[in-house]
Amino acid sequence: MLIFSLLIITGIYFLMTSSLIFVWLKAPISGFLDSEKVGESLKISVIIPVRNEADNILLLLQDLEKQTFSKEKFEVIVADDDSTDDTLKIIQSFQKNASINLIINQLEPKVNNTSPKKRAIDSSIQLASGDLITTTDGDCRVGTNWLETIATFQARTGAYLISCPVIFIQNKSGLRSFFDAIQIIEFASLVGSGACAMFIKKPNMCNGANLTYLKTAFYEVDGFKGNEDLASGDDEFLMHKIAKIHSEKVFFLKNKATIVQTHAHQSWQSFYNQRKRWASKWRHYNNWQTTALAVFVFFANLALPLSLIACFFTQIPNDFLNRLFFLKFSAEFIFLSLIVSFLDKKRLIWLIPFVQIIYPFYVVFFGLVAQNKTEYTWKGRKLK
């Protein structure tokens, strides 16, 4: 019975991963610049929630200054959430000589704020004059064609929500670089699987560091209402609500010009806090298919450590264990190689097998830890 169960679960996982390869290869590169479509594009309000980003925010604002998209067609709203460093001073200093329309949304301090990012975005949308809302984070970097490519794609498709790729910046040397590389590959798997789900119109995940949606769609689904007390989910829960009504208008923009770069975690503690926060979201999904997928992925990864234990106690033969490893890792390696290459991290492909070995233990660990409803620290605050 154990052998049969492990084989069925791993076999289904192999077929699912193989289908992702097909979907990714079939999906074309999209969002090429079109002067006619740029002219028809909607005005964009770029919203950047920040807290204690003094080391990063200036670089992002400089990137926005360099956008090829007409400066009359977008505005930037930085929502400062009670920063205790020089973040606000840096923004104010930049604002004095900025060629872009830069608006500072200074949030009032709030006690027991369980979802500070949602609060920052929601209040900024109320100030926004754009028809399109694009969100990113204060520690991100964007390319010069970022907004123009998104605007062209939206004008061409009439998209209600557009998810774009996010990747980590890698340090140049040492153990720090190795830890970053592991995070890049792990995160690439999320980017790729989320993209493929959107390609088949079954969206399940996205990232608020690179997300665009119609302001009218935000209000149509009552924004963050219903999950405003959850620290996470300013991106995925909103996407699910929009997709429930307009699934055909939810897209992933497969174009390198829209890649947003952000910093990998610099400590195991910050990595742990974020992944725990992410893993805790699945319990609150209202879409049974998304919940079922999250549960299946958990058990598909649990199958590997279980099979190792069973093999150690001679409950399953070695040759069967080898077959399970092949089913789990073969299609997965091809898929990850495609996504990592698209994200311009081809040099890290050799590390994929290492990540594949540790990933099942990581998934099981965070899947179990996330069920504990304890507080965790994020941006200097304790959140639930």
Rank of each mutant, 00 (worst) to 15 (best):
211 L>P: 04
154 Q>E: 13
206 C>G: 12
142 V>P: 02
146 W>D: 05
142 V>T: 03
165 P>N: 15
143 G>A: 07
237 F>P: 00
195 A>L: 09
201 K>H: 15
228 E>Y: 11
125 I>V: 04
208 G>F: 05
223 G>Y: 12
167 I>K: 15
144 T>E: 15
182 I>S: 08
191 V>L: 08
150 I>L: 12
161 L>I: 06
200 I>L: 03
179 F>N: 09
202 K>G: 02
131 D>F: 00
220 E>V: 00
138 G>P: 05
175 L>M: 14
154 Q>A: 03
174 G>S: 03
201 K>R: 14
176 R>W: 07
154 Q>M: 09
130 G>L: 01
209 A>R: 14
222 D>E: 15
184 I>E: 09
207 N>P: 01
134 T>P: 01
162 I>G: 02
200 I>A: 01
132 L>T: 07
157 T>V: 05
144 T>N: 05
222 D>V: 02
190 L>D: 06
241 K>Y: 01
216 T>A: 11
174 G>M: 03
170 Q>M: 13
200 I>M: 06
152 T>D: 07
223 G>C: 11
224 F>A: 06
227 N>E: 13
229 D>R: 12
201 K>I: 05
175 L>C: 05
235 D>Q: 07
146 W>Q: 09
215 K>C: 09
174 G>K: 02
159 A>I: 01
163 S>T: 08
137 D>H: 04
193 S>R: 11
170 Q>S: 13
125 I>W: 01
141 R>F: 07
170 Q>P: 09
133 I>E: 05
192 G>D: 05
199 F>C: 04
150 I>Q: 12
180 D>N: 12
148 E>Y: 02
136 T>A: 05
173 S>K: 14
197 A>P: 00
187 F>T: 10
237 F>T: 07
232 S>P: 00
181 A>C: 06
188 A>K: 03
172 K>W: 02
211 L>V: 10
131 D>S: 11
211 L>W: 07
194 G>K: 08
231 A>I: 03
152 T>I: 00
182 I>D: 04
